[in-house]
C-alpha cells in the first residue's frame, strides 16, 4: 500500500479529524481563499474544451418521418460542437434543400439561451436551413428559453420521466462510463458523473463535475464536484478506497501517512463532504441523501 502526503499549492488550514470513521480520518484540509480555485476553474474549462473527441460521432442525423433530425452529442463541449456542426454541414449538407425545416435533439445538455441562438445562427444564417424546434429531455426543459428565443422546444420523449424522478437522476450533464482501468498518466475530465469499471492507479486522475464511482480500487487522484464552489452533494465511491489524494469541491484530503498494514477487511467506501471536511464511511449499498448532518 502506497501512501503519501501531498503538498498543497496554497496555505492549508488543518481541520478536525472525524472519529469513528474508517480510512480517511487522518489529515483533512481545506483550501484557503477562493483565488486559487477561480484560477483552477478557468484551467479546467480550458482543458475540457481541448479534450479530443473519442471515436464518437458528435453529430448524428436521422429522419423522423419527413422531418430531418440532427442529434447533438451532449457530452461534447458546446464550442467544439459548433465546429463539428459546421464541418458536418459543409461535408454532408448537400442533400438538404435551402430552407428545409429540421429539428435539433440536444439530449440532456442544458442550453443557455445564447448557446441556442448560436446553434440557430449556424443552421439558419450560415447554411440556410430552418429550425422547426429543439428536442430535449424533460428534466432540463426550461420554458424561459423558449420564450426568450422564439424557438419552440418540445420533449424528446413526451411520456418520459416525471420531474421528481428525473431530478434524482441528475439535472445536468451525463455520465461517462470508462470501461477499463486508468493507469498512471491517464487523465479523465468529464462534465458530469464518471463511472470507472476497473482501478484508478497511482498517477492517474479522474476529475468530474459530478460524482465519481469506481468499481475497483482507487489509488490515484479523484476529484468530484470539480467546478462547483459548494459541492456538498458530490461524493466518491470505490470498492477499495485508498487514494493518494481525495478532492471534493474545494476540499482536499490526503491519505494518512502511517506505515500501518492494510486493513484486513476491505469494504466499499463512500467519501463526501460533511462539516468542512471530507469524511469516509463504509458504503452499505444504500445511498442516503443526507446521512451526515
Amino acid at each position: 500500500m502506497i501512501r503519501g502526503k501531498v503538498n498543497s499549492p496554497v496555505p492549508l488550514i488543518r481541520t478536525f479529524s472525524h472519529e469513528g470513521r474508517k480510512g480517511f480520518g487522518g489529515i483533512l484540509q481545506e483550501r484557503k481563499g477562493e483565488a486559487k480555485l477561480a484560477m483552477w476553474k478557468s484551467d479546467w474549462s480550458d482543458r475540457l474544451t481541448n479534450q479530443t473527441l473519442l471515436d464518437r460521432e458528435a453529430i448524428r442525423v436521422s429522419g423522423r418521418g419527413r422531418n430531418v433530425d440532427f442529434s447533438l452529442d451532449d457530452t461534447v463541449p458546446i464550442d467544439q460542437l459548433e465546429e463539428h456542426l459546421r464541418q458536418h454541414l459543409e461535408r454532408n449538407g448537400d442533400w438538404l434543400v435551402d430552407g428545409e425545416a429540421v429539428t435539433i435533439s440536444v439530449g440532456r445538455r442544458v442550453l443557455k439561451p445564447e448557446d441556442l441562438m448560436r446553434i440557430r445562427q449556424i443552421f439558419e444564417d450560415e447554411f440556410h436551413l430552418k429550425i422547426a424546434g429543439f428536442r430535449c429531455e424533460p428534466e432540463i426543459l426550461e420554458r424561459e428559453i423558449s420564450e426568450e428565443t422564439g424557438v419552440p422546444i418540445f420533449l424528446a420523449h413526451p411520456k418520459g420521466l416525471s420531474t421528481p424522478k428525473a431530478k434524482a437522476i441528475r439535472q445536468a450533464g451525463t455520465s461517462l462510463l470508462v470501461k477499463n482501468s486508468c493507469r498512471s498518466g491517464t487523465s479523465i475530465l468529464h462534465d458530469g458523473d464518471v463511472v470507472v469499471l476497473g482501478d484508478v492507479n497511482p498517477g492517474a486522475q479522474v476529475i468530474a463535475t459530478g460524482d465519481i464511482i469506481i468499481l475497483g480500487a482507487l489509488r490515484g487522484i479523484a476529484h468530484a464536484g470539480a467546478n462547483a464552489t459548494d459541492a456538498t452533494e458530490a461524493f466518491i465511491i470505490a470498492f477499495v478506497l485508498r487514494p493518494l489524494q481525495l478532492r471534493i469541491g474545494r476540499y482536499i484530503g490526503t491519505a494518512p501517512t502511517d506505515n500501518g498494514k492494510e486493513q484486513a477487511t476491505v469494504v466499499p467506501e463512500i467519501a463526501r463532504v460533511s462539516g468542512h471536511s471530507i469524511v469516509v464511511a463504509p458504503f452499505t449499498g444504500k445511498f442516503q441523501r443526507n446521512p451526515m448532518p
Binding site: I2, N180, R183, S184, G185, T186, N201, P202, G203
Partner: peptide, 16 residues
C-alpha cells in the same frame, strides 16, 4: 520498488 512500478504502469498504459 514503488517508483519502478509506477513507471511500469504508465508504460503498460502507453503500450495499450
Amino acid at each position: 520498488e514503488v517508483s519502478a512500478i509506477r513507471d511500469a504502469d504508465r508504460v503498460i498504459g502507453l503500450l495499450e
